[in-house]
Design a protein around this nucleic acid. Structure first.
Length: 577
RNA sequence: GGGUCUAUAGCUCAGUUGGAUAGAGCAACAGCCUUCUAAGCUGUGGGUCGGAGGUUCGAAUCCUCCUAGGCUCGCCA
């Protein structure tokens, strides 16, 4: 039974409002003492010409006993407050949670529709630094959230694997490259010669010209140039893969800039046919005055392509290949204008799916404390960040294990530290609204108390610990008689059940605004409420066996809820810690 | 200068599309381990929602102006 829907249906005949209107108005009170659902009567005041409190109390008595799942209805301050029968909500919510298990909150909302997520997209031959972490972690989480509610997803890593920079690398590698170093630390070596190229080019401008020539030769397909480029690309990807594996991120496509290189002429031709392109200061541009946007450059004055033209080609290709319902770009907010222009050109060209293209932006990563371990230049490698976090976690695990789990094998501690350490990093990026800048500090990221990945994971481990004990005693808490579940109804139990019940709504909301932090807040809430419960009640020592079993069912439901939510963030829960 | 985003507790942030006494976490202070994991729990203090007007039954939320800051504004991506 859907309580919310039933209340809406009950209110339709009494208010004369359409169901959608009521759905908009029906809210969840700020405090649980005020009820489970609330209907504000202020809008009715105008049509009925009565004071809201009067209307509320009239509605309360009219609605009376017609809704059998309602315990009572109160009229307070012009609000109609609904209290659901606790036992009913609790037992229903736990049964549903146990049925869905680790897929709690999943649905078929997006069945038959495909969402494209363009994220991560690092530049080949450049270090994978913390700046890339945000798009990678955010995109990964969004893909999981969309899949959870039934969409098919295509995760696209739009690699920066083309452009004059590769001409530079080819020139630099021939002059100063070290093949052995390239095999061992490919990106380090490529970065070294890239930096050297720029240093040398200051003295010798001919190098720049040579680089442009080499890129031209690469683009025209000369075997030597292509082979070198391919090698740089392969080795870089191999190194990126190490980070992706640690983060648990996978891609369905690595079609990057090089992939679209030969698709651009057709795009230019298409735009020309529509007479959208005009000459401006030597460059070919599409004017976007009517959209109040600056012109979008399609071809540079030397005739070569640019970021925008490649992105336009990519959108067209993706539509033909995937027939997407949504085409999402997980790219930093500084590029907002760029995407507005790209989508603007497509719209102007009459490409209908332009409205389904979406830029999901995120803030900058800034650094509060500068004393971070870096190997090269002033960038912080994501790999180093992950390792640092894992190391710090391992220290804590070691000191805890000495007290609580003297039997824990070294290999387990390492595996757990890896998951918690990486979970902490992921959590740092996903805990707030994505458009906020992240001021990065070790102190905050490695603060494992309160709302943090370790806190949530710890809660899961505690719940699992109880269930292991129940398993040992042979208790079947997954198939508890619904009648027993109605024994639950304390404040904590009710609060937990309500949180579990809210999963699907929260996850759908998170998807609709592309904000994983909503899932973070949900799971933190669940963890906090669970810890409270854990502290108040000794589950396994509950005297009455039926009540104990019901409580175990609730614990099982909560544990799968936490696991499900963590999975949506890209974090792997651990059974012990 | 144009565009755009932001400003909420000492710090980091929420605030369900205009509703009830503005909420969390951290930090501070005071407590709780012979009991399923103390990475936990319980309690206390802490606010002119950047400022000034306006809209209305009602504003952190909408409008105008101002202040401060971020990002961005044609051949990089």
């Amino acid at each position: 039974m859907n309580f919310r829907q039933s209340i809406i249906e009950g209110l339709v005949p009494l208010t004369q409002f359409p169901a959608t209107k009521i759905a908009d108005l029906l809210e969840i009170p700020p405090q649980s003492q005020l009820g489970d659902y609330a209907f504000p009567c202020f809008l009715l005041a105008k049509t009925l010409r009565k004071a809201p409190p009067v209307i509320a109390s009239e509605l309360a008595s009219q609605l009376g006993q017609s809704l059998d799942f309602i315990d009572r209805i109160e009229a307070v301050n012009g609000y109609l407050n609904f209290f659901i029968k606790r036992q009913l909500l609790v037992s229903q919510s736990i049964q549903e949670a146990l049925r869905q298990g680790d897929h709690l909150g999943s649905s078929t909302l997006g069945a038959g529709q495909t969402v494209l997520l363009d994220f991560s997209s690092p530049n080949i031959a450049k270090p994978f630094h913390v700046g890339h972490a945000f798009t990678t972690i955010l995109g990964n989480s969004l893909s999981k959230i969309y899949r959870h509610i039934g969409y098919q997803t295509v995760r696209i890593n739009h690699l920066g694997d083309y452009g004059t920079q590769f001409g530079k690398l080819i020139v630099a590698f021939r002059l100063w490259g070290d093949a052995t170093a390239l095999d061992i630390h490919p990106i380090q070596e490529l970065l070294r010669i890239y930096v050297k190229f720029h240093d040398e080019a200051k003295e010798n401008p001919d190098l720049e010209a040579e680089a442009r020539e080499q890129f031209r030769l690469l683009e025209s397909g000369l075997p030597d140039q292509v082979a070198l480029w391919q090698k740089f690309r392969d080795l870089s990807l191999k190194e990126f893969d190490i980070v992706y594996k640690r983060l648990g991120v996978e891609f369905d496509s690595y079609a990057g800039e090089s992939f679209y290189s030969d698709k651009i002429p057709a795009i230019v031709e298409w735009l020309n046919e529509k007479h959208l392109i005009e000459d401006s200061e030597g460059a070919q541009v599409v004017r976007l005055d009517e959209q109040k946007l600056p012109p979008c450059i399609i071809l540079k004055s030397d005739g070569s392509t640019i970021y925008a033209s490649r992105d336009i080609a990519a959108v067209i290709y993706r539509q033909q290949t995937y027939n997407f319902a949504k085409n999402i770009y997980v790219v930093g907010t500084p590029q907002a204008l760029h995407f507005k222009q790209v989508f603007g050109v497509l719209e102007k060209a009459g490409f209908e799916k332009a409205k389904d293209c979406l830029h999901v932006g995120f803030g900058l990563v800034k650094f509060a404390d500068r004393k971070l371990s870096t190997r090269s230049g002033d960038v912080i490698l994501l790999e180093d960040l992950l390792s640092e976090s894992v190391d710090k976690t391992l220290e804590i695990i070691r000191s805890n294990a000495a007290i609580r789990h003297p039997d824990m094998p070294e290999a387990d501690m390492l595996a757990i530290a890896e998951k918690i350490g990486i979970g902490s990093v992921i959590f740092t990026f996903l805990k707030n609204g994505r458009e906020r800048d992240i001021v990065f500090s070790w102190e905050e990221m490695l603060d494992f108390e309160g709302d943090s990945a370790p806190y949530v994971m710890y809660t899961y481990a505690r719940a699992r610990s109880i269930l292991r004990k129940a398993d040992q005693e042979g208790i079947d808490y997954l198939h508890v008689d619904p009648a027993k579940l109605r024994l639950l109804g304390s404040d904590d139990e009710f609060a937990l059940a309500k949180l579990l019940e809210s999963f699907s709504q929260v996850i759908e909301k998170a998807a609709s605004v592309n904000e994983p932090f909503m899932v973070v807040r949900l799971v933190c809430n669940l963890a906090r409420t669970f810890n409270k419960y854990y502290h108040h009640e000794s589950i396994m020592k509950t005297q009455a066996v039926d009540l104990r079993d019901a409580r175990l069912a609730l614990v099982a439901a909560c544990s799968s809820g936490i696991k499900a939510a963590l999975n949506l963030l890209g974090i792997d829960a651990v059974e012990r810690m």
